[in-house]
Amino acid sequence: MLEVQDLHVGYGAVQALQGVTLGAAAGGITAVLGANGAGKSSLLRAISGIAPVTQGRILLDGRDITALPAPARARLGLAHAMEGRRLFRQLTVEDNLRLAWSFGARGVPLAEAIAEVHQRFPILGQRARTPAGLLSGGQQQMLILSCATIRSPRYLLLDEPSLGLAPIIVQQIYAFITDYARRSGTTVLIAEQMATLALKVSDRGYVLRRGRVVLEGRSEELLAGGSEDKLAANYL
């Protein structure tokens, strides 16, 4: 269980989050929706320990981690696929995976973990020796997800995994996420602008607007209750 209580995040004068409370149930997928600048990334970054929290608490399985530095949180089993295609661009695909694995939980031996990635995304196997910065956008997103999951995390934070990708790749990425969540039992928190996409795969959704939760509920109810248009008109 990942819980966020009355979280405030501020960058100097800019208040990105103003008292957000939410929970991500163990083993489930939770969606955080919102328009540009709503505070989705700030929420995920605060959970990871790389955004300035001014007030509130973050709990992992009941343990208060608000004061822990980012690497310590990562060692507790938190993995974060950040926005902006963050990879070590000058390192090869293989080196990116190896580094991610090395500082993760090392649940499975490296060779096995890498073989699993190659089976799931064969293109990453073919391009193992290519610098990550030279991959296409879709391939980069596959690598980012693989780097996050190869750490055998207990909590997985995904920041707009669909951003800037062709619809067919988005489908592939989302199929991977749902499949991975089901197989591994990892607790997943996805930030998305594409509301329907995220609501279809999640159990519960929260809508953020200007740093506050303005709507929450079971994903199917959010999908049914307001049609997509209504959701968009009202909250996004």
């Binding site: 790389i50 990562a74 950040m82 963050r86 990879l87 070590f88 580094l99 500082f103 993760g104």
Partner: peptide, 25 residues
């Protein structure tokens, strides 16, 4: 070595290194 690569990784993206659990400090 992985530690050597971590040094290089920090030079490329320190925030990503932090999030991946490397003891940056």
């Amino acid at each position: 070595t992985v530690w050597g690569q971590a040094v290089f990784a920090i030079s490329l993206d320190p925030e990503l290194a932090l999030v991946q659990g490397m003891p940056v400090r």
